[in-house]
């Protein structure tokens, strides 16, 4: 079989990313490196997310993203996670799929179509999702977004391969977090993180107070602290910052 130069180029790109994974020492570096390599394949954004229940955030769960922050903010505000078509398809697949695949496009609810439309308006147009499963790991999805509808199958295979190494590296970095992230500029306390987690779930301060069995004023205090630490004006902005900082799972 003749090897096309494009095919070899995609493989070289994936191999280069895999080699770089061995020396990456932080989540931020991993995000930048993966982003660089998917850019070379014509993609512009990605997320790497462990499947987690809304209130359960295990230590080895992963959240990496290079995504438009206005979309993340909107997604959180509208509580779109529970309606997310891509997530629901990914839960039942073991091989990658394009967002334009009939398995995604057929049978969408009106709200799911609306979410897709709104995402397109922020530049999230076409994508490939790679589900990743490993014994003892929380299953994950890697969403890789680009402007092109028709993705070369070999590009999709390269993304598949790279995504497996992305997730493996992310989990290994997560285990090292106490050592590698001691110089983190923004440190949230457990209480602040917990409050912000509930904010991300769309809960009001009074509800959070009940859930955490503390007073509403204490909840308010913790939430305000997170806003102050991140230097942002709104609760949702604090959630977005914590999300991008891998301190929060949505």
């Amino acid at each position: 079989m003749m090897m096309t130069s494009k095919k070899l180029e995609y493989f070289e790109n994936a191999s280069s990313f895999i080699a770089e994974c061995k020396t990456i020492s932080s989540s931020a570096e991993l995000v930048a490196t993966f982003h660089k390599h998917i850019s070379e394949l014509g993609f512009c954004h990605f997320t790497c997310t462990s499947f987690c229940s809304d209130s359960d955030t295990p230590h080895n769960a992963v959240r990496l993203a290079e995504y438009p922050s206005e979309w993340i903010e909107h997604y959180i505000q509208q509580s779109y996670k529970k309606h997310d078509r891509i997530l629901s398809v990914a839960r039942n697949r073991i091989i990658p799929f394009s967002w334009d695949d009939p398995v995604v496009m057929h049978g969408m609810t009106d709200l799911q179509e609306q979410i897709f439309q709104e995402a397109r308006e922020t530049g999230i147009i076409h994508g490939v999702t790679v589900p990743v499963y490993a014994d003892g790991f929380i299953p994950a999805t890697i969403n890789i977004v680009g402007p092109n509808r028709d993705v070369d199958p070999d590009v999709q295979h390269a993304l598949h391969l790279m995504s497996i190494y992305l997730y493996d590296t992310a989990v290994k970095l997560r285990k090292q977090e106490p050592e590698t992230l001691t110089d983190r500029v923004i440190e949230l306390t457990d209480r602040e993180r917990e409050c912000l987690q509930w904010v991300a779930e769309g809960k009001s301060e009074s509800v959070i107070a009940e859930l955490m069995n503390i007073s509403q004023s204490t909840v308010h205090f913790h939430v305000e602290n997170t806003k102050r630490k991140y230097g942002v004006a709104t609760r949702v902005q604090a959630v977005v910052r914590a999300f991008l900082d891998n301190q929060l799972l949505l």
């Binding site: 095919k7 995609y10 493989f11 994936a14 191999s15 895999i18 091989i95 990743v132 499963y133 490993a134 014994d135 003892g136 790991f137 199958p153 070999d154 295979h157 390269a158 598949h160 391969l161 497996i164 190494y165 997730y167 493996d168 989990v171």
Partner: peptide, 18 residues
């Protein structure tokens, strides 16, 4: 993913195929 998790050092020899 299981091979990587268990500690093997793997070098892909080509892209996957379906």
């Amino acid at each position: 993913p299981n091979m990587l998790k268990t500690g093997y050092d793997l070098t892909p020899l080509g892209l996957p195929i379906l």
